[in-house]
């Protein structure tokens, strides 16, 4: 799953997947992703994993690293 998420992040930001190799890195603090890419990423996440993430439920601190995103996706899949 981590690899899938790294690829989606790369697609949404126009960066290389290797930029997201550090799965605990804070994506927002380090400027790897902005609001625009966040929305693109969330939408691709919805298609890929068949989950629903309402934009206003989206809390940056809970989605700020690849590890945290994995957790969130798993949680939403279980719902």
């Amino acid at each position: 799953m981590k690899e899938q998420i790294q690829n989606l992040l790369a697609q949404a930001t126009g960066r290389d997947a290797s930029d997201f190799a550090d799965t605990s890195e804070d994506l927002y603090a380090d400027g790897l992703i902005d609001s625009m890419a966040t929305v693109q990423f969330l939408l691709s996440l919805q298609d890929e994993f068949d989950i629903q993430v309402p934009v206003s439920e989206f809390d940056r601190s809970a989605w700020s690293s690849v590890d945290k995103i994995c957790e969130q996706v798993k949680e939403l899949q279980n719902d």
Partner: peptide
């Protein structure tokens, strides 16, 4: 950002 920018882009 949350109520105008993100929602519009979404």
């Amino acid at each position: 950002r949350d109520y105008i920018f993100m929602r519009f882009v979404f």
